[in-house]
């Protein structure tokens, strides 16, 4: 019993330690947010990242405190950040550490505007407001330029996340927003969800012009047989990372989709 009481006492000491509250230090458990942090030049306050945070290269040098689903609590208490920054996917993990007085900040990335809003918010939080405004202005200019690259608009695009089961993007997915912004049409944009598993027959009947296969998804023979009139493009890991993440590099995704009509 006394061992248990001693453990409780030490945990209490750690939690109530005044040095715990360091000014503006945070960890990021979202690769997207890590990218934003670097883009607004506030990485000195970033004290830890996850195994998925692979951009920019320097992010890999930061202490790795876990991944989407698991954080090493001991490391977290050693670092003593003020905030855990998380996105929709990792929000449930971040909320667990409120008990140690580490404030979870969960950002939602639902569309392009939400990216701008989140960059400005992080600028404010880290006292880099001016940087964040400059970054947003720069991205907006790049987006305008990227959109103008589409010389053959309104191509019907089918974006496949996985073939088994057949999973694609729906109306609420950020990628659908990107495809629309690029001047093309996502054939699954009417599905009122984010990443649905759908019937293959539905996709066949929609006759897509272009099929994009995510990096993780294998280019198997059946897809070419089932969609004989469609152009099939398999993404590289780098392209997939850019498209999957609503990061400041998202204008590159618009460039990618805008140039799909080119041969």
């Amino acid at each position: 019993m006394y061992k248990f009481l001693i453990s409780i006492f030490f945990i209490f000491l750690i939690i109530s330690n005044p040095s715990y509250a360091n000014n503006n230090s945070f960890i990021s458990i979202s690769p997207t947010i890590t990218e934003i942090i670097y883009s607004i030049d506030t990485q000195d306050q970033l004290k830890g990242v996850t195994t998925q945070c692979n951009f920019p290269e320097e992010a890999k040098q930061k202490p790795i405190i876990g991944d989407y689903y698991y954080i090493n609590e001991q490391m977290l208490l050693d670092i003593k950040p003020n905030y855990i920054l998380a996105d929709d996917l990792s929000a449930f993990i971040a909320k667990k550490y409120k008990k140690y007085n580490i404030e979870p900040i969960c950002l939602k990335f639902t569309n392009i505007n939400s990216i701008y809003e989140n960059i400005l918010f992080l600028g404010k939080l880290t006292n880099k407001e001016e940087n964040s405004i400059n970054v947003v202005t720069d991205i907006k200019n790049k987006v305008k330029k990227a959109k103008s690259l589409n010389k053959h608009p309104n191509k019907k695009v089918l974006y496949i996340i996985s073939t088994k089961p057949f999973r694609t993007i729906g109306k609420n997915s950020f990628i659908t927003n990107i495809i629309t912004e690029s001047g093309n049409i996502s054939i699954t944009s009417e599905l009122n969800t984010s990443y649905p598993i759908i019937s293959l027959e539905y996709a066949i009947n929609k006759n897509p012009d272009i099929i994009i296969l995510d990096y993780h998804c294998n280019k198997n023979e059946n897809i070419s047989k089932l969609f004989p009139n469609s152009r099939i493009i398999k993404m590289t890991k780098q392209q997939s990372d850019i498209i999957d993440r609503p990061s400041p590099r998202f204008y590159k995704s618009i460039e990618f989709f805008a140039q799909l009509g080119e041969n």
Binding site: T193, P196, I198, S199, E201, Y202
Partner: peptide, 11 residues
């Protein structure tokens, strides 16, 4: 699984 909420599929 394929038809009840077509085109979505239930596992």
């Amino acid at each position: 699984s394929t038809n009840i909420i077509y085109p979505l599929q239930i596992p």
